[in-house]
Design a protein around this nucleic acid. Structure first.
Lengths: 191, 191
DNA sequence: TGCATTCGGTAACATATGTTATCGCCCGGC
DNA sequence: GCCGGGCGATAACATATGTTACCGAATGCA
């Protein structure tokens, strides 16, 4: 994560450098649990290589909320923010290289940077983007059929469809894996 | 909106006072369109009395995204932020009293206040809460049946069910109004 | 008062989606 | 090379949900 910010905000590079040493690099196989549902999130994660999903277990049904790929950062946001048990699990999908930044260091970093107007603007912008992301997802559920949502995914975020096993995508779209399979074959016939 | 902030942040009251005069008070009947889909959002709205919905038209189908009541502020966020055509309409549900603050004044106010650490923290907190709100909505679509979502609404935000016509609630829950009626009668039988 | 409009309930039918089960393919470990 | 697990397709059936149509109550307005 810090590498990423360093590229974007070189003028703040002294800050980034100071915290680089606190990051822990992990090289893990697929299906590695980085944070378990019910535990308090104590790290911010940054994906250098591979991919990761945010998910949860609902009465034995595995549901995926979001996918993360190279150069994306994540945490179980609500848990991280409020020190509450995480509603979600964070788990690798592919063999991955991940950096962990412990919460206390990120908090310190944020405090230091709260004096920097550039940084504040960036934080607000990032926060606004996330808000819009989830809002768009929400609106899509109200507006679109599962078939349309799948087509949106294919056209707007094809890397997800290419790299992620289909049953994860099914739960992300809010349908059963059987039905996603039907959707795909229906779309194939249409051409 | 400014009244509201003044209560919460009395230490910043000189700021609020300065902008109070720019607010325009409107008293409007039900079903008044405050912002039309496709136009650029130029105001921030604050509901003093009544209620308002954020909605859009999807091939002739009316869909509701969110409800707002007394002492809540809103705008078509993406349009307001990026000066793009609004994806949404803002419309009163009940006869309402609404305050409008033109965008340029809100922008000025934000610029002035960007020096105030308290204000920044508040903005980030508000933004985080909105993000969590939409994320919870999104997760609910993945996790819950329409019946469960209706029950959540009844138990967590009963004022919505009490004050808002049912067909708006149906589209907000992502079902047809006929099906919401079925859900209600099924729940009534269960007791 | 009378009338149109809005709103909510219900029925009947069509379609979408879930569930369970089975099959085949591919791939990694041994 | 063999084997088991993960993955995806498909079928058959059950259930959920949409669509259209109709009715009646409540409401606001002429």
């Amino acid at each position: 994560m810090l590498f990423h910010f360093k590229d974007k905000f070189p003028q703040l590079s002294t800050y980034w450098d100071k915290y680089l040493e606190f990051q822990q690099r992990m090289e893990v196989p697929a299906k590695t649990v980085l944070l378990e549902e019910g535990k308090v999130s104590g790290h911010y994660f940054f994906v250098e290589k591979g991919c990761v999903r945010l998910c949860f277990n609902n009465n034995g049904n595995d549901k995926t909320v979001q996918f993360f790929f190279e150069n994306e950062g994540l945490t179980s946001f609500e848990s991280f923010l409020k020190n509450t048990p995480s509603l979600f699990t964070i788990e690798t999908i592919e063999p991955s290289v991940v950096y962990l930044l412990p919460k206390k260091h990120l908090t310190n970093l944020m405090d230091e940077l709260s004096q920097e107007p550039d940084f504040i603007k960036m934080m607000l912008a990032i926060s606004a983007e996330r808000q819009l992301h989830y809002m768009h997802e929400f609106v899509s559920f109200i507006r679109d059929t599962p078939e349309q949502r799948y087509q949106n995914l294919v056209s707007e975020r094809p890397h997800i469809v290419q790299r992620v096993p289909q049953h994860y995508i099914a739960s992300y779209l809010g349908v059963s894996r059987v039905h996603l399979s039907r959707i795909k074959s229906a779309l194939a016939k249409k051409r």
